[in-house]
Nucleic acid binder design. Structure first.
Lengths: 154, 154
DNA sequence: GATTATTACCCACAACTACCCACAATGTAT
DNA sequence: ATACATTGTGGGTAGTTGTGGGTAATAATC
């Protein structure tokens, strides 16, 4: 029996090489379906990290965006901010994708990077930033955090 | 007659070998349904131990997580903390799963480990930690503990 | 159009993992 | 009591995975 399709979990420590390439963990590659192939959409995360979507997941986001009327200023602005930094990439024979200098700068990536599975997408972090970002948000919104934890039976 | 499906009970003493493998008790393997097959999700427990979910149980957790919008910072942080240390494993022909160095360190596992059935999941403990952890929490929250005990007819 | 920079593709290799087999200990059936 | 099956534990081997670098194709610059 196979894993849930397109579900990413776990944390992996990899290195960003001199050419700006990072490995996609083998476990993630196996999760992808045939339609997903080797195509991803890479973009800015809402946290200081890089988001990597399997193409199939990204397409469903695009479908949602299509529904938003351009008559609304907020809609226009939202679509713009969502799509602006997104570009499609494929992984090479060794399972690596290239991260653009833009994104490397945005997420402040250095040699050592942390790859996180986030259910339907993948995050690439500078390990130092991840810890502080998460600690912060859990402290600030600790009551909301607890509420979520109570709703979901682990 | 068989036990309830996917229900784990009892305690078993096993050894973690040099390659970081632990046996899944035969009694647990028999409890698994066909859909569960040999797939588990292994992750950090909320106590200093390792949690092992049958894949089917874990999927229901994932389904909840999928519903949380990534626009909310708390949601992102919550999803991250839930899936960060989770990864899927299968047991080999001898019925063993591999425990990652990360998790071994977190649960301070040594050669001798205790496997506990926890109804819908399995726990792997360093025996020394288990005793002290349980004693502690029952002392601190003894009134809450009694309340729970009253609710459930044993 | 020539030169340089960037990207994509390929190969190489060390480290690791998954798979297989072996065997002793325990449990079960005849 | 003996034979047989199951279970827990150890280790070897072949394939996979992560990482670096080289070369050719493409794009950018002068």
């Amino acid at each position: 029996m196979t894993i849930n399709q397109n579900t990413f979990t776990g944390e992996y420590s990899y290195s960003l090489d001199a050419k700006g390439r990072v490995n996609i963990p083998a476990k993630f590659r196996n999760v992808l379906t045939a339609e997903n192939d080797q195509s991803f959409v890479i973009t800015r995360g809402m946290d200081p990290c890089v988001w990597v979507y399997p193409i199939i997941v990204w397409q469903s986001i695009e479908d949602e965006l299509r529904k938003l009327s351009s008559l609304s200023q907020v809609n226009r602005s939202f679509v713009r901010s969502t799509v602006r930094y997104a570009s499609s990439v494929q992984y090479d024979k060794q399972g690596r994708i290239a991260v653009s200098p833009n994104l490397i700068e945005y997420a402040q990536l250095e040699k050592e990077v942390l790859i996180l599975g986030m259910v339907n997408k993948i995050e690439i972090w500078n390990p130092a930033l991840l810890d502080s970002a998460d600690k912060q948000s859990q402290e600030i919104d600790s009551s909301q955090f607890d509420e979520l934890a109570n709703q979901i039976i682990l």
